[in-house]
Amino acid sequence: MSRSARRAAATAGYSAVMPPQLADQAETTLQQVVSLLVIFVEAAGALVIVVGAVWAFVGFVRVLLTSRSAEMFIPVRLRLGRFLTLGLEFQLASDVLRTAVSPSFEELGKLAAVATIRTALNYFLSREIAEERRQVAEAQATDQQAQQAGGTSR
C-alpha cells in the first residue's frame, strides 16, 4: 500500500470521530512535531558522543604525558564508555520516536536493525563498565590490605 493510500485510509478512519480535514491536519502536525523531536534527540545523542570522544582523547594524551602505566587508561575508557552509553540512550529514544511516523516496512526494518545494534552495544558497554569497575575495586582492596599488613608487621 502506498503512502498516500495509507494516509487516505487513516484519514477515513479518523473521520469517524472528527472531520476529515481536521484529521489530516492533525496527522501532518503530529508528523512535523515528531520529526522535529527526532532531530533534537538525535543531535543531543551525537553531541554527547562527540564530547565523550574529545574528553577521552584528551584523557589518553594526559595519561601518556604523565604516567605510561596501562592501568591508568582504564578510568578514561570507563568514562568514554559512560558517554557512549548515554549517547546511545538518546539515540534509542529517537529510534522509538521515529517508529511513530515510519511510512514503510523498509524503514521499519532499518529502525529495527539500528535499534538492535544500539541495544546490543548498550548492553555490552554496561557489562564492561561493571566488570572493569569491579576489577578496580578489587585492586584497591588488595592495595589497602597490603598496606594494613605492612603497618601491623612493623
Binding site: I49, F60, R68, A70, L84, L121
Partner: peptide, 30 residues
Amino acid sequence: LFILLGTRRVDVTVGVFLDLLVAAGLLRLA
C-alpha cells in the same frame, strides 16, 4: 599509535582504538 609507542601494550592500544571507532560508527549511524 601514541599509546602503542608509549606503553607497548597491544591490548590497551586495540581497546582504545576500537572504543573510538565505535564512537565514530555511532555518529555515522546517526
